[in-house]
Every structure is written in C-alpha cells, then in structure tokens.
Design a protein around this nucleic acid. Structure first.
Lengths: 197, 197
DNA sequence: GCTCTTCTGGACTGGCGGGTCCATTTTTTG
DNA sequence: CAAAAAATGGACCCGCCAGTCCAGAAGAGC
C-alpha cells in the first residue's frame, strides 16, 4: 500500500487521536467509535490504514508514545542527571497526564501482543542509557567503581515505573520524585561528600 | 440480605474464581461467563451476591487480594527486613503469578471506582509500616537519624510497584529484587560499616 | 483528458457480554 | 410441619462494538 501525503496525515491523526483517547479514558474503555468521533474519520479509513484492526492501532499508539519519552542519553554529568530527573517528572505530571504506555503495559501481553515488545524495548533502552551514564561517571571517578551499575539502573527503572503507576492511581508525583531522588542520591559515593549540584 | 453458611461459601467461591481469572487473563479479558464457568455457578447466584454486578465483584476481588499481601509489620530488625524482602519476592514470583491488584490498579479509576480506594489504602498501609520500621531502627541507632524515613519508604513503595509492573510485562523478578535490595541497602548508615545480615 | 490507485463515508452484521427475571429448590425459623 | 427467606439455574433481552463491504470521491501518473 502506497501512502499519499494526505493519507499519511490521516493515519497520523488517527494514531494521535487514539493515544489521546487512551490517555483520557484508559485502554479498556477505548472503542474505535470514540477514536472515529474524535478524529473525524470513518470506519473505512481506520481499517484502510490498520487492516489488523484494533490490535494494530494499539501497537501504533504504543510506538508513537514510546517515541516521545524523555531521552536519557548522555547522562555524563550530575547536572545532566538532575535535568533528566526534572524532565521525567514534568513529562508525567501535567493535567491528567496519564501514562498511555503504562496503561498499555498492564494487559498488553494478552491484548496486543506486539505492544508488549515495544514496551519491553523502551524499558531496556532506558535502562541501557542509565547504565551507560553510571559507567561514565564511574570512569571519571564521580561514582564509586564498586557500585554495580547494571543493578542500580535496574532499580531506578523499577522506581520510575512504580512512581508512574502510583501517579496514575493517586494523581500524586510524590512517589515518582522520591524514587528518582533517592535512586540518584544512592549513586553518589558513600564515603566522600557529595559533589555537583 | 442474610447469608447462610452455604451462601457465604458460594460467594467466597465466586470471588476466588474471579481473582484467579483476573490473574490468568487480566481484568480486561474478564467476563462474567468465564467466572461462572470456572466456579460452576449461575448468573442468578452471581447477581444475587453482587447486585452491583461486575463492578461490585471487582471491588470484592480487590479487597480479597489486598488481604493476602505479605505483611510489612514489625520491621524492627534487619533480619525482619530481609525476611520481608524475600516474602515479597516470593509472593509475586511463582508460575504465572500475576499481580491482580496492579492489574486492577491500571484502570480502576474508571472501571471500578471503589477498587481505586482499596488499592490506595493498601499502598498507604504498606508505606506506613515501612516508615514505622525505619523509624524504629533509627531509634535504636541502626539507621542514620538524618535520613528522611517517610521519603525513603515512599521510594521503596514505588520500587515495589514498578518491580511488579515490570514482572508482569517481562516475567522477570530482576527489577523487583533490585529495587528492594538497593532500597534496603540505602537505609543502612553511610559512614559506618553495615551490620546484621 | 483518461485510467488506475488511494482515500473516504457509512450502512450493515454477527456475536458477545452484562444485566433482568422468574420459577424452582433448599435452608432457616418458629 | 408450615411459612418465610435465601439460594440456584437458566432463558431471555438489549445495546454495544469490532470488523465487513461496497460505492463513490479525490489524487497520481501519463
């Protein structure tokens, strides 16, 4: 299937609309009708661009959301770490800012097989970036070389996910912030005073 | 409505069956028919015990699951902390051991209004226990008095939730374990050698 | 212009699933 | 034992929603 400029726009509009819908009302409540209404499109169009139906759409949504996560690249200074922390919090905060991905992550194993993979990949990528950042600071001597970089990054990723989950349940970013702050603070060397910011 | 012994058993069977169903296939996939088939009961019975229908059943499931979370009371020694850690991991591990609650937590705001409260309460209780445990160890001097107990507990709770979320998505307990281990390790005093197990 | 492809709209369907209702059986109560 | 209350089974209804189909409009290519 060859997409014309117009076609690509429509397709894009559908994905974005579906993502908004998930954010607003949750995956479970997502119906194609709602997406159609919100995006001013028709059944025909939706199935034209997503022959696989709802599953394929959900997969596209997951990919779309995954693409706009705050990047954790180049965490080579403490300043970069704290900046990242702030970006993460800001990204998940905001009016009713619900995390579409975490939402998708809840059931996707069964709902949309492919979405699972997208999410797993996102987590792995994020974790790899964190690990790299930690290793970099170890190389420059700002983090204790003894520290298990991989494990620390793993814990941090868990903290973020949990923080977002709690945020979704309670609307408070307290858990997310605490997890990030304490996780990052834990990276600093234990027997020397903290430096940087 | 007065419950007879038999009635109570049936009701119980329905809740347990529904919980299993959620564990196996997820909330989204849960249908009353499935529950009926699994528990060998009829529509009439289900609506007899849960006049509120699916929502009320889901609420009961949430409460039921909430009741069997590993208790975090009396974390007054390091041994108790590590024992608790092991119980948490064990509880969430196991064949296809999916966390019904986290599953419910994903959308409950919209799906089952009451379930939200049950989950929030569970998290708050758990966090309170952790905070109390930390304060206790601070009183005995085993944890630095400077440490913010509440905030540390908050971060730990986030780590657990995230660990479970990742477990559900990937099937690995690595994140849960890392979050717990590093979270607990972070409690130990920074300028004195670690004690206890 | 003509033709072929892509795009769009919406009517229609089929089944699934939540919820209602009532008739029947079992248990409790007195 | 008789009457009332609770428990059970299952037929039935109805709305919703994913997915199908096709007819016609809009563009691309020549």
């Amino acid at each position: 299937m060859q997409l014309t400029r117009k076609g690509a726009e429509t397709r894009q509009r559908i994905v974005a609309g579906a993502a908004d819908e998930v954010r607003d009302r949750g995956v479970t409540a997502l119906t194609l009708q709602d997406v159609l209404a919100r995006t001013r499109t028709s059944k025909g169009q939706l199935f034209h661009y997503f022959p696989g139906g709802k599953d394929e759409l959900l997969l596209a949504v997951a990919q779309h959301e995954s693409d706009q996560q705050p990047s954790a690249e180049d965490l080579t200074t403490w300043a970069a770490w704290h900046d990242w922390r702030d970006r993460v919090v800001a990204h998940y905060r905001g009016t009713g800012e619900r995390c579409t991905l975490s939402d998708l992550a809840a059931q996707p194993a069964r709902t949309a097989p492919g979405a699972q993979a997208v999410i797993t990949r996102l987590l792995a990528t994020r974790q790899a970036h964190l690990t790299a950042g930690i290793r970099h600071l170890q190389a420059t001597g700002e983090i204790d070389a003894e520290l298990d970089a991989e494990r620390a990054a793993t814990a941090l990723v868990a903290g973020i996910q949990g923080g977002v989950a709690v945020l979704m349940a309670t609307g408070s970013t307290a858990h997310l912030e605490a997890a990030l702050d304490i996780g990052i603070a834990g990276l600093r060397p234990r027997f020397t005073p903290a430096r940087g910011r």
